[in-house]
Write a protein that binds this DNA or RNA. Structure first.
Length: 479
RNA sequence: GCCUCCAUAGCUCAGCUGGUUAGAGCAUCUGACUGUUAAUCAGAGGGUCAUAGGUUCAAGUCCUGUUGGGGGCGCCA
């Protein structure tokens, strides 16, 4: 018999039909005459209830069925007598596909801590929380592609291995086939890469932006959506060594066009999630409220779905760095020296406590900060006429901080060249990037959206290691 | 990388200022229960209190190292 997915099964009303359903046991409850098995196959958050009439044969079978076992059940679709569900399956034949020894299987029909599940990451898909996150994550991936496709953007696969060692976005993971025990050396003691796979030093990409720009300067509107690698020793709830990033790059866009696109994108995907992942989001909302029930009322986060709708309804606040500094300088925590880093004046780099103040206390909505001092931003950003700021924009979200970082790019060859010289970036690795400003340069803009940070916001999870199936962080590469 | 906190049964945790055979709930096993909803009720098994030292008449409890983990900060997406 052909298997019916639980998601489909639960919507059917053709009671009396013979069906087959397969999945993994979440709980088993038995009494004298009847037993109930809650089974899940991941097609939906909800379980299907399998009703088993007790007799000698089923009694033996049920003794082998525990949480985690996989079953194939043939039975009759029935309207449920119980109150917890509309439909259930009256089992006729139960085949145990795989047992799960309860002495060894780590998951139980109860709440586990996220820390415990993180150490059992190979099994955590089997929990409601992680399967819900996985489904939401998928929906968001799909929504992102749909958003760009609908607007005529082309998806570009930028390289994962790069020969450029000056992308400037962070420490890189080196890629080599050289024997690390016996590295070939040049006469001056440096490593001789001539016999390495590419004949030169190679790294994993920290950003697809520079290559994305090359594509945008021909196709107009492109986006990348790929893995990104940063070898930073970052130990926080919002950093990963391997993460996924969306990087659109648009020819003929100025900074305002760029901000408009980023705000539209974020609102579109949040709306898509609300429309397509209602059950999972409701579950995640309850999970979050349950987790925070012991916190003081003022420390609890806004209810998840309310928070997501709030982002849709409100235009993001848009302020320049200079305005933000003024707000912070005259803020209570700055005057009373409650900030760990008190803002002394223009030019200060904003710490996360300042960003949180702006988003959570002052504006109480997402904030786009623009026109940062050139000294604290990347070399490729377009220089403003004031000579001291660049056309950068960061989007700050409550709780997670920076979710988008972008800018209008410097399209003037002379200005870009001078900047590269000023920062001692080797011209030999950047010549092709500079060339785009020599041949038909145009104003253009782009940004990077941290996908996992978006999923944090969307799911109400608080640690980025719980929104990617297999997190890579310093000293953590178990699964 | 810096700062902080934590480690007691398979899981979640209690164990007050060091003081007799280390507790609970869930899970497991046994039994009860005519349909349950992480079912309920009764009983059983299960711990060299992360690890190595030290202080003390006495250490789960105090001190030090090690390992594992949480949180905050920095770097940023």
């Amino acid at each position: 018999m052909k298997r019916t997915e639980i998601k489909t099964l639960l919507q059917r009303t053709d009671y009396g039909s013979t069906i087959n359903v397969k999945g993994w046991v979440r709980t088993k409850r038995s009494s004298k005459n009847v037993a109930f098995i809650a089974m899940n196959d991941g097609s939906t958050l909800n379980n299907v209830q399998i009703v088993v009439e007790m007799n000698e044969e089923n009694d033996k079978l049920l003794n082998r069925i525990h949480t985690g076992a996989s079953l194939s059940v043939d039975g009759i679709l029935a309207e449920s007598m119980g109150s917890g569900q509309k439909v259930e399956v009256q089992s006729q034949t139960i085949e145990i596909l795989g047992e799960a020894n309860p002495d060894e299987y780590p998951l139980q029909p109860k709440k586990h801590s996220l820390e415990f599940l993180r150490e059992k990451a190979y099994l955590r898909f089997r929990t409601s929380t992680f399967s819900a996150v996985a489904r939401v994550r998928h929906a968001m991936i799909f929504a992102i592609h749909q958003f760009f496709n609908d607007r005529g953007f082309y998806n570009i696969h930028t390289p994962i291995i790069t020969g450029s060692d000056a992308e400037g976005a962070g420490e890189m993971f080196q890629v080599t086939t050289l024997d690390l025990e016996h590295l070939p050396k040049n006469p001056d003691g440096t490593i001789d890469y001539k016999n390495d796979f590419f004949g030169k030093a190679a790294n994993l990409t920290v950003s697809g932006q520079l290559e994305g720009e090359l594509a945008a300067l021909a196709l107009s509107n492109i986006y990348t959506f790929g893995p990104t690698f940063r070898a930073e020793n970052s130990n926080t709830t919002r950093h990963l060594a391997e993460f996924w990033m969306i990087e659109p790059e648009m020819a003929f866009y100025d900074l305002t066009d760029n901000m408009d696109l980023a705000e539209d994108l974020l609102k579109y995907v949040v709306k898509y999630g609300l429309d397509h992942c209602k059950e999972d989001l409701e579950f995640l909302s309850n999970r979050l409220q349950d987790e925070e029930k012991n916190k003081k009322a003022e420390e609890r986060s806004m209810e998840l779905i309310e928070k997501l709708k709030f982002v849709l309804d409100e235009p993001f606040a848009r302020v320049t760095y200079t305005e933000a500094i003024d707000i912070l300088m005259s803020s209570k925590p700055n005057k009373k020296q409650q900030f760990q880093y008190v803002i002394e004046g223009w030019g200060a780099d904003l710490q996360s406590e300042h960003e949180r103040y702006l988003v959570e206390k002052h504006f109480k909505r997402p904030v786009i900060l623009t026109d940062y001092p050139a000294s604290i931003k990347a070399f490729y950003m377009k220089q403003n006429e004031d000579g001291k700021t660049v056309r950068a924009m960061d989007i700050l979200f409550p709780q997670i901080g920076e979710i988008v970082g972008g800018s209008q790019r410097e399209e003037s060859y002379e200005k870009l060249y001078a900047k590269i010289k000023e920062l001692n970036i080797p011209e030999s690795t950047m010549w092709w990037y500079l060339d785009t400003r020599k041949f038909g340069t145009v104003p253009h803009s782009g940004f990077g959206l941290g996908f996992e940070r978006l999923i944090l916001f969307m799911t109400g999870m608080t640690n980025i290691r719980d929104v990617i199936p297999f997190p890579r962080t310093p000293l953590n590469l178990e699964f």
